[in-house]
Design a protein around this nucleic acid. Structure first.
Length: 549
RNA sequence: GGACCCGUAGCCUAGCAGGACAGGGCGUGGGCCUCCUAAGCCCAAGGUCGCGGGUUCAAAUCCCGCCGGGUCCGCCA
């Protein structure tokens, strides 16, 4: 809805309707700073210019209530009609509110952690960003598919296979059992370096499709993935497909991409096949001297496949892959293929330093989920709610806290993990939003018990707080649009939080159920619309909107 | 050595296609439940927006240099 208001403002400004000078403002519903820019060339003060523009423009839009010139700013205020349409559209569209009616298909690849152990708290930053982006694209109307790219051909997979051969698998959760084998095998390799040869042989045989070795790899990888899927499921994340990199060897895409590169004369054959790239110090090897391929070769093949099947594809990657990704993109561009759009996120580290699966130095996502859940249960222990519901609430609050803590931080910010913060619900976080939602539900529940009246929102009844809340509610599609353009899910988390906070201001100052009939219908409409925005917002963040807590 | 990212009150964080007093939260001090859920709300203290230059009518935001932290530069993935 806000998007419509914005368009009307641009239209009203006519020749001055440059989007670059539109600002959201605390002084108005939308402000233009264009007078500051024009002041210089017109040799007048910004205030004079703004006054003249306001004088000149004619408001024909029903959505614009008034325009004012203040200190050089041109301030636009929404009309009652806009506020009324906002509430009515939200109530009418309900679970669809937020959609943008966009078309198209998109592929989002995220998580893609090596199948050599459980996901740790760095991996799930990837998963949470990727899943949230996927949900938001989907809401906008786009057909989204998500992929987990499985690195089954790496040295680390061969080492897990060695670990399983030597030590078997314990009866721990499958991904943790694989990690144990992996860590043990790494230790073994340190004491018996001659085993290195066996690892290489395993890799070679796997690439060449040796039946017995393939079975071992498939078993090890599937074991890890089984555990990984369980973990992701716990935080409401599923992938549409798991794509194994070995598939691209077996289905001919690797040969195909090597042929294309060769035909374009990009490859220098010096035993190994090498691509030299301008602007990069290091050359890229795409085929070893022994004839086997490298990670980037298979990834190029995967991206060839993506090009053939999707017009838009996004990868969520750790910042450590920046150089790699730019090499990949460069090569794709040279051969006329589209590079992926990439969302990079910085590392999650522990107070004592960075994590390492190989050294077994990490906090697993499972441990985090378990401990946060236990803490939520502890807080609920004294409440008068039956045990079954208590358990469900604790689970929803825990998952919400985890997802929100990761998604709210801008991807480019490095994070240091802190247990006391992870376990603290007494602050503005998912539970705060869930609580606000539950409050709205509670009011509506009582209203129904008392015989729900028709909801009727009236713009002219709005107090300042109500107006502020309704304006914010109108912005949900606008923020969804911004996430699509900027690929920064944290701005949406921030938005949902601000709705909850503004609703709490409203809640404190405005009795709803005790209000007289006209005001009561008006406020119930606001509460219901807020409930819808919070519910839809939480769902887009992958967090369960609780009706009571 | 080269490249990329980050640096906002004791701690965490928003803002960074330049513009109206730098928003929140945690923690600290004080206050609010005969009234729709106190996982809430209010008040107070706390800031050289890492440092130094520059561009501009205007810089947390853009440019240059430095400092601090992280990351990357394999015929690994």
């Amino acid at each position: 809805m806000f998007l419509r208001f914005r368009e009307e403002v641009i239209k009203t400004l006519g020749e001055y309707g440059d989007e670059r000078f539109l600002r959201e403002s605390e002084h108005s519903d939308l402000a233009s700073t264009i007078a500051f820019k024009l002041a210089k060339e017109l040799k007048k003060s910004p205030k004079e210019v703004a006054d003249e523009i306001v004088e000149k423009i004619e408001v024909e839009s029903d959505y614009i209530g008034s325009v004012e010139s203040t200190n050089g700013y041109i301030n636009f205020f929404a009309s009652y009609e806009f506020l009324e349409d906002t509430i009515n559209v939200i109530l009418d569209e309900d679970e669809n509110y937020g959609h943008l009616n966009l078309k198209g298909r998109i592929l989002i690849e995220h998580t893609s952690a090596n199948p050599d152990g459980p996901l740790h708290i760095g991996h799930i930053r990837n998963s949470i960003i990727g899943d949230t982006i996927a949900r938001i694209f989907s809401k906008a109307g786009i057909d989204v598919k998500t992929h987990y790219y499985v690195n089954d051909m790496g040295r680390q997979t061969a080492i897990t296979v060695l670990g399983v051969e030597r030590f078997g698998l314990s009866d721990k959760k499958p991904d943790h059992a694989i990690a144990e084998a992996y860590v043990n095998a790494n230790r073994l390799l340190e004491s018996e370096p001659e085993l290195e040869k066996h690892v290489e042989e395993l890799m070679l045989k796997y690439e060449n499709g040796d039946e017995e070795v393939v079975a071992k790899f498939v078993n090890a990888v599937n074991t890890a993935l089984e555990g990984i899927k369980q973990t992701l499921g716990q935080i409401n994340i599923t992938h549409d497909e798991y794509i194994w990199e070995s598939e691209f060897i077996r289905n001919g895409y690797v040969d195909k991409i090597l042929k294309v590169l060769d035909e374009k004369n990009l490859i220098k054959k010096d035993g190994a096949w090498i691509i030299e790239l301008e602007d990069f110090e290091k050359e890229v090897v795409v085929r070893r001297e022994n004839g086997t391929t490298l990670y980037i070769t298979r990834d190029l093949a995967y991206h060839l496949w993506k090009n053939e099947n999707y017009s838009r594809f996004i990868n969520v990657l750790g910042a450590d892959h920046k150089l790699y990704a730019s090499q990949l993109s460069k090569i794709l561009e040279i051969i006329g293929l589209k590079p992926p759009e990439v969302i990079f996120f910085e590392f999650v580290s522990l107070p004592e330093g960075s994590m390492s699966t190989r050294k077994g130095k990490f906090i697993s996502a499972d441990e985090l989920i378990e401990r946060v859940k236990r803490e939520a249960e502890r807080i609920l222990a004294g409440r008068e709610i039956d045990d079954e519901e208590k358990r469900k609430i604790a689970e929803a609050v825990a998952v919400g806290a985890i997802r929100f803590d990761f998604v709210k931080v801008a991807p480019e910010k490095p994070m240091t993990f802190d247990w006391t913060k992870a376990l603290d619900f007494e602050r503005q976080t998912a539970s705060y939003i869930q609580y606000s939602h539950a409050r709205a539900c509670s009011i509506l529940r009582r209203a129904v018990e008392e015989g729900m009246p028709d909801l009727e929102f009236k713009g002219e009844l709005c107090t300042a707080e109500e107006r502020k809340l309704v304006m914010l509610l109108s912005k949900m599609p606008y923020f969804i649009g911004r996430v699509l353009n900027e690929l920064r899910p944290n701005i949406f988390a921030e938005y949902v939080l601000s709705v909850a906070s503004t609703f709490n201001d409203f809640y404190r100052l405005h009795p709803v159920l005790k209000a007289d009939s006209e005001l009561r219908m008006h406020r119930l409409a606001i509460v219901d619309a807020t409930r819808i925005v919070l519910r839809n917002g939480l769902e887009l963040l992958g967090i369960e909107p609780l009706e009571r807590m």
